[in-house]
């Protein structure tokens, strides 16, 4: 590692330890690091948006006299009237335009991908293979889980049994989610531990060399 890399990695190692210090209790070092990350992220995002979007969608289009872009630019500017008590009503136009377009574009596609495709994938033909038995279990589990959310009838008797199977189905789903979440969180810890290990080895080699 070069001297510059050692210095940057030292800073990263110190900040990593500052974040880990929260595990003992909340403290100023953790707070400083948290705010530093939020500040750097906000600054980076703002500049990225400016250089890769505002520049070519506003400045360059106006320089090239692409006049059609005046409409979205005016709509964008109208959003800023939210800060004025007298003119905030103007901001409703770009919001209405945006919501209208989004709704029109998304509702048919969402219905197709999230409802129809999912229902048809649930109701597949049964047979006596492992996959077929799995499909039967999926259908029973989905129906029972749906019954659990039917609150117009008391969950007793046969209905109670079906509802209970629904709860177990949901619990299996939550359990799978929890297990994967643990794996994800541990991965973050492990990556930092591997970084610290590599850093200390590099630091030792730097000073020994």
């Amino acid at each position: 590692m070069t001297t510059a890399e050692i210095l940057w990695n030292t800073l990263a190692a110190i900040l990593t330890l500052c974040v880990f210090s929260f595990l003992i209790k909340d403290n100023p070092l953790y707070k400083f690091t948290e705010r530093l990350v939020a500040g750097v992220a906000a600054g980076y995002w703002t500049m990225l948006i400016y250089h890769t979007n505002f520049t070519d969608k506003v400045i360059l289009t106006m320089q090239n006299r692409q006049l059609a872009y005046i409409i979205p630019i005016l709509l964008g500017l109208a959003m800023w009237t939210r800060f004025s008590k007298n003119y905030s009503w103007i901001s409703r136009y770009p919001i209405a335009f945006y919501i209208g377009i989004s709704t029109g574009v998304s509702i048919p596609v969402y219905m197709y991908t999230s409802v129809f495709k999912q229902i048809s994938a649930t109701m597949v033909p049964f047979d006596l293979t492992y996959a077929g038995i799995n499909n039967i279990i999926v259908v029973i589990a989905v129906l029972c889980a749906l019954f659990y959310f039917f609150f117009s009838k008391e969950h007793t008797g046969t209905f109670g049994v079906i509802s209970k199977i629904g709860i177990y189905t949901l619990m299996i789903g939550f359990g799978a989610g929890f297990g994967m979440t643990v794996m994800g969180r541990v991965a973050l810890l492990v990556q930092r531990v591997i970084f610290l290990k590599d850093y200390f080895i590099a630091l030792k080699n730097y000073f020994v060399a």
Binding site: K117, S120, A121, M180, M183, G184, A187
Partner: peptide, 24 residues
């Protein structure tokens, strides 16, 4: 990410995605 993966297996079963790499 691992946190997200349980929510996307349903799309694998329905054929809306052809592959899924979950977490680490």
């Amino acid at each position: 990410t691992g946190v997200m993966s349980a929510d996307y297996y349903q799309y694998l079963q329905s054929g809306q995605i052809f592959g899924l790499i979950s977490g680490i």
